[in-house]
Amino acid sequence: MAKFNFNMQMQAIVVGNLSDEFVRHSTNVLGNYELEFSVCPDVYQAVSRLMKTNGNVLIVGRIEQLSRENGRFFHISGKKKAWCCCLTETNSARQYLRSLSMIGTNAFVINDSAEIEDVLARLLQTRDTSVAASRGKPLVMNRDIRLSDDEMDALLGNEETKL
């Protein structure tokens, strides 16, 4: 497996309990990429951990966990210029859209835990840490329904574009 090799060492914060399959899978993948990571049981501990970092952080977690406290976590991680990788497993289109609108910028949205590798590969490939941040909207990584920018704008209700 290719090594993750940013110029500046990146850290990851995995939010959730180690009894969660997704958390275990994420830590395995991050370990394979030789990324420094820590596991926080919830968003409260994650914010505390985030405040001790100097940026260049990837946060991984389920949307249910990261969106607690009215999605305030995304606002704080955005200010720290951290990226979020959110797992949304919902089959409900309405809930999915709600998640997307809450996540905001600096985020990758995945629908399957295996897609976390796509996120890391993408970051590795471009070596461009602003890949998600510069878009101003979340990047949907779903292998089946990867969305174009126009489609994403329409989904999120931007008025200029229509799906």
């Binding site: 968003v43 409260y44 914010v47 405040m51 406290e69 305030r72």
Partner: peptide, 12 residues
């Protein structure tokens, strides 16, 4: 007003 903002502020 929000506990997460409070934790962020406490950190700074």
């Amino acid at each position: 007003s929000n506990i997460l903002d409070g934790i962020e502020t406490a950190g700074g």
